[in-house]
Every structure is written in C-alpha cells, then in structure tokens.
Nucleic acid binder design. Sequence first.
DNA 1: TTTT
DNA 2: TTTT
Lengths: 165, 165, 165, 165
Amino acid sequence: MINRVILVGRLTRDPELRYTPNGVAVATFTLAVNRTFTNQQGEREADFINCVVWRRPAENVANFLKKGSLAGVDGRLQTRSYEGQDGKRVYVTEVVADSVQFLEPKSSSEQRGTTAGGGYYGDPFPFGPNQNPRSTNDPGFSRIDEDPFANDGQTIDISDDDLPF
Amino acid sequence: MINRVILVGRLTRDPELRYTPNGVAVATFTLAVNRTFTNQQGEREADFINCVVWRRPAENVANFLKKGSLAGVDGRLQTRSYEGQDGKRVYVTEVVADSVQFLEPKSSSEQRGTTAGGGYYGDPFPFGPNQNPRSTNDPGFSRIDEDPFANDGQTIDISDDDLPF
Amino acid sequence: MINRVILVGRLTRDPELRYTPNGVAVATFTLAVNRTFTNQQGEREADFINCVVWRRPAENVANFLKKGSLAGVDGRLQTRSYEGQDGKRVYVTEVVADSVQFLEPKSSSEQRGTTAGGGYYGDPFPFGPNQNPRSTNDPGFSRIDEDPFANDGQTIDISDDDLPF
Amino acid sequence: MINRVILVGRLTRDPELRYTPNGVAVATFTLAVNRTFTNQQGEREADFINCVVWRRPAENVANFLKKGSLAGVDGRLQTRSYEGQDGKRVYVTEVVADSVQFLEPKSSSEQRGTTAGGGYYGDPFPFGPNQNPRSTNDPGFSRIDEDPFANDGQTIDISDDDLPF
DNA sequence: TTTT
DNA sequence: TTTT
C-alpha cells in the first residue's frame, strides 16, 4: 500500500490557518498546477488541488505563503466524506502534506540581506517535515463535519481525529 | 509545475470500460489504499481513490484486473467539475494513470503454465505506458457531463475532450 | 528541495541485516526493477537499485523479504562517498527507504491461515514507516568507510552517523 | 514494476549538451538537493544527483538552466555500468528525466517583457515531457563506454542505444 | 470558487 | 554481482 503525491504549483489564494479544539494547527490551501499539455482549443488548463498541513508546517505555510506563491508539496492522497448542509454525503479527495516547500525567491526585503547584486536568490526556505508524532493521550473528539475548504471563517469544525498521526 | 501520484492498493470492484464517441477506450476503477497508521480507535482506515486510464492500458485493466486485485498506479492528479443531476456543480479529484501495474500473482490457470511447484509466481503483467499521442485532428466533442464514477451502465457520456493527450 | 523515490521491484538476493556500534538495525538490499520498454535488441532490461532501511523496518525486511520477493519502496535518493580499498574515493547513489512494502502473497504456510481455496490472498503485510526519531544524545562515531553493498560478512563498518534522522 | 523519482534542487554547474552519432541531443547535469534534516554536527548536507535528459528537453535544459538554477525533475532511476579507464567495471546510478521544470523566476532581461513592477515574476518555463518515441529503425551502435558525468569535452562517447525510448 |  |  503505497500512497505518494508530489506537486509543484501556485496557491490560488492565501492559506487558511485554523486550530483543533486541542490547539493543533491546520492550514489548508489550494494549488493550481498547470498541465504540461494543451486541450482541444490549444489552451493550457490547470488542476486545482486542495492540500492540508498539520502542526508546525501549518504555521509556516500561513506565515510564508500567500496567493500566487510557488510551492512544492510532498504528501499523500486522502479521501473523506462529511454530511453536507443539505444532509447528503459529500466526498472529498485532498492531499495531506508531509512537507511543504517554499519555492519563491526571498522577498525583496529579505533578499536585501542575502547577497548583493539583484540577480542572485538564496536558498528556498525549507519547511521541515511534519515530525512531532501525535501525542497518544489526546482526548477523543467527534469527526470533522464540515469541508475545511468550504470554510467561511469559523474555527471550530476541525477535529483532532483528522490528525494524520 | 510537477504533478505526480503513485499508488499501490486493491480494486474496490471490477473496473468499468467505456468508449468515447470516437472509439477511444477509458477504464475507471477505485483503489482502496490502506493507511499505514491507525486512527484514535486503533482501526486501520483506507483511502478510496478514483482512477482513470485511457486507450490500450484501459483495455488491459478491464481484462486483467477485477475486484480485489492488487495494482500499482503511476499518474497525475486531475480535477474537473460537471453539472450534477440537481443542477449544481460537482467537483471531482481523480488520478489519471499513465501506467497501471498488475501486482497480483498470475492466476492458478495461467500459473500452471509458468513453473512447476505451486510456490512460484511469474512476473506481474506489465501494462505499457500510455504512449500513442492523441491525434490532433480529432473532431471536437462537448465536455463530459456526468461523473464517470457515478456511472450506472450508460456508455455515452465520456467525451474525447477528456483524453489526457 | 524535494527528494522522493518510489519503486516496485524484486530483491536480487536476500537482504543483509547489520547493526551500528550503537545497536541500530540497518538492512540493505537491491531491487531489480524491470523497464517498461525494450532495448534495440528487443530485450527488456532492468535497473538494479541499492536500498537501505534503518531501525524497525530493517528487521522486518530481513525477516519477511528474500531473494525474488516483490517489494515496494518509498524513500529518498542519497549520495555518499567513501575511501575505496585502493585509496580512491568511490561515489555511491542509493535509496534510503522510509517504508518498505511487502507485495508478495503470504507464503503457503501463513496462507493456510487466511482463506481456504488457494485463489485468494490476504492483504500484503504493511511495514510501518520509519518512525522513532533519532535520539539526539547519540555519541559520535566515525563515518561509514566501506560500501555496505560490497559487504562480505563483516558487521563493524556501519556508523550511527549514517542514520537518516 | 514502478520506478519514479521526483527532485527539486539546484544545478551544481552548467549543464552539458552532447549529441549521439545519430544526432540526438542529450543533456547531463547534477542537482544538489539539500536534506531536510541536519547531521550530528548540526550541518545541513546535500545529495548530489546526476540527471540525464534526451531530445528536445535536453536543448531546453542547455539553453535555460545554468549553475545555481532551481529546477524540478520528474523521471526514473537508471543503473548502468561501463569499463573504467583502469579496466574495471564502474557502476552508475542516475536519473533519466521525463521532464525538467525550470523553477527560477525569469531573468531580469526576460522579465522586462512580462509585467511592469519589478516584484512580479511570470510563469516558470515549462519544458514539455519527452514525447517523441524513439524511431525504431535507428541503426545499432555500441553501448556507451564512458561515464557522461566524468566528461571532459568529448562529444563522441554517447550511443543512441542509451535513448530511454 | 481558482494561480502565473 | 543481479530479480520474475
């Protein structure tokens, strides 16, 4: 059973950062990944892929990425379902990122600090992998019952049960 | 823009083979990929991932895989949307397979032909990669307007426009 | 900085299990991965890829895989160099596995326990991912100075410094 | 048999472009991929991974990438061996790229053409995948007998037999 | 509901 | 030095 996804694309909007009742950070964002081929009409389309990151990298994502940022994701595909507002089951497929890579050159302010001579850009900022294992004495919580990507500002509907480990 | 997915899992049911108006084969199937970790309740859950293959490998999939078969997929993530039966847009994320690998030992009948001594299993059957480039003079067709995974036997609702290349 | 490798192939010989001075298990093995295309002479060649696993999964590999076993690897590419016996630097590229998947049907003895009627094979045995983080107070040891793949039975030349984390 | 490698890193020097006797382009380059973890001494090491691209993307690589460029590679691991200068067999593991992604912002000269206001960087240049299948009537040539990465300017030692397809 |  |  192998489940591995690697993506490089651009954020379609600013990431959203939320917290579980237990205080664990989760960030969600959508990557637009342009296809390498064109369609019948000669247009280059894109795939829009929902991604989730937990814990420390979630906060890095929220702090360093924004709409339009180029980012790499190494993770796994996850499917889940939840009760939609009209009472029927909604099925969701998303990428749970083990690590997120910031591929944008440092912003001009930071860049100033790196190396003289405009043309050079330092190393992309490496977000560490998701490494702190889930504490095993977490209290149980009911499963997530809202789509984190159809979110409108609430901070209450993510459960600690959704932690990948 | 990198978009790569690799999966190993088992088919949740027999694959479905259909043809576009242009006669191009498409097979769809769902892979159950067991997670490597257990949830709060100590159960091992699975992700159920919809996959699509086009052309020659589609027919191989239909001929050699069935419910329960262990298979590997190397492909890319695709998102699309279609008009649901209630008139609202349905968003879909699925894997378009470049190649599908049959990881089941040969069946006992075939196995008979390989090597004596029950304990031995021949090579997994290698489906070739999707290699014939799409002919560029394909006539245009309207986009797919049904979810191929919510299919109930029709054979008419897949468009040549959905060919990955 | 993304570095991800996924392989499915067969072991060219039994895995070798060794221990660092600190008692950490390491297994090495070579996967033969058949190419999907044939060469000029119409022959199907293979790539022979050296793999390394650390800790618990190392012992699983040693216990459950043997020459000819079909296995999946999810890991990263690593390069290192060491002083060859003739005093010149030897450069090595190998895969450090995060997880190894046993893709062989259960052996006939175990199989007996699963389901009657030869044709059915249970779930492939899932080796867990490499999960116990390296203790940070490990004493220092000198770097590895022999190729673990050119090994002839010694058990002394692997250093704790080679632990991936 | 699955064989997939995805890398994002920086070129350690300018790529080398050569041609087979048959006129097919091959580019070779080495990617430095920083590890996400630090070693015993708290230093962040890197892996140095040799990559090969054939045909059209080879020329794109030679034209658009140079020492220090950030690039993504999607390909497969290949092993080969050749007769070293001292007569003994040298074993080589390298990545054969299906596609190479240029992840550097457009250079200031090109950038000028895109959008006003220095802060904006256009799309990374997408190298197409390796798509023209090898012509099957290529004359045969003897196998490569020099390491393309230990190259010192010759252009004669790459064989058409090394084409991935 | 999409990025460059 | 290679597996099926």
